[in-house]
Amino acid sequence: MEHEEAAHEGPLAQFTIKRLIDLPDIFGIDADFTNSALFMLISVVAITWFLMAATRGGNLVPGRLQSLAEASYGLIASALRDNVGPEGKKYFPFIFSLFMFILFANFIGLIPVPGSFTVTSHIIVTFALAFFIFIAVTIIGLWRHKLHFFSLFLPAGVPIYLAPLLVPIEIIGYLTRPISLSVRLAANMLAGHTMLEVFAGFIIALGIFGFAPFIFVVAIYGLEVIVAFLQAYVFAVLTCLYLSDAINLHKH
C-alpha cells in the first residue's frame, strides 16, 4: 500500500493502481495483486464463462448467446482470413484471445460501479501487448523470408532513386507501430473515462441544471460503448495487417 499515491482525487483517480494483495516478488520482480490484475482476471473469467455458457448446448440453430459467441468467432476469423489468408490460421487463437481480452477489459471498465477499473487505460498494458506483437511479427517475418524480409521496407515498383527517401520512412513507420497501436487504445480509454468523470462531476455541481451534463454523460457513455468495441476490433485488425506484412511481405 505504500506505493499508492493519495494525490489522485480528480477525474484521474479512477486510474489509480491499488495493491490488493501483497505477494512475494518473483525473481526480484514486484508481483503484487493489484486492482488491475483483478480486472484482468475478471475479464478472463468473463470471456471463458461467456463462451462456454453460450456454446454449452451446441445447438444447430443458435440462440442469442450462442449467436454472439459465433459472431465474435466469425468476426476475427474473417478479419484474419481477409488480411492474412489461410497462412494465418495458426495465429487465430492468439488474435481471438487478444480481441476478447481487450474487448472485455474495455466493457468491464465501463460498468459504473465503485472501484471500477479499465485495464486497457494503462499505456504499459497496451504497450506490452503491442510490443509483444511487434517482436513476434518481426521474428515470424525473418523466420519465413530470412533476409528477404527487409524488402518490406522498399515497396515493389518504386523507382530506385526514391529508395534513400522511402526506406527510412518505411523503417520509422515500422518501428513506430507498437507505439501507435498501444497509444491509440490507451488514449481512447483514458480520454473517454476522463471525460465521463469530468462531466459526471458537473451533474452535482450544477444542481437543478445538472440534467444537461447528465444527458451529455448518457450520450457519451453510449459513444464509449461503441469506442470500446471499435478499439478492440481495430487492435485485432491491425495485428492481422502486421502479421500479413510479415507472412506475405507486400504481395497481399
Binding site: H3, I17, R19, T34, T48, H122
Partner: peptide
Amino acid sequence: TTYAPQLVWLVITFVLLYFLMSRMALPRI
C-alpha cells in the same frame, strides 16, 4: 512502480486466456 505488477499479471492472465481459448472455447465453437 506499478508497471511490474501490471506486466506480471498481464502475462499470467493472458497466457491463461490463451490456453482457455485454444484448448476449450475455440475448438467447441
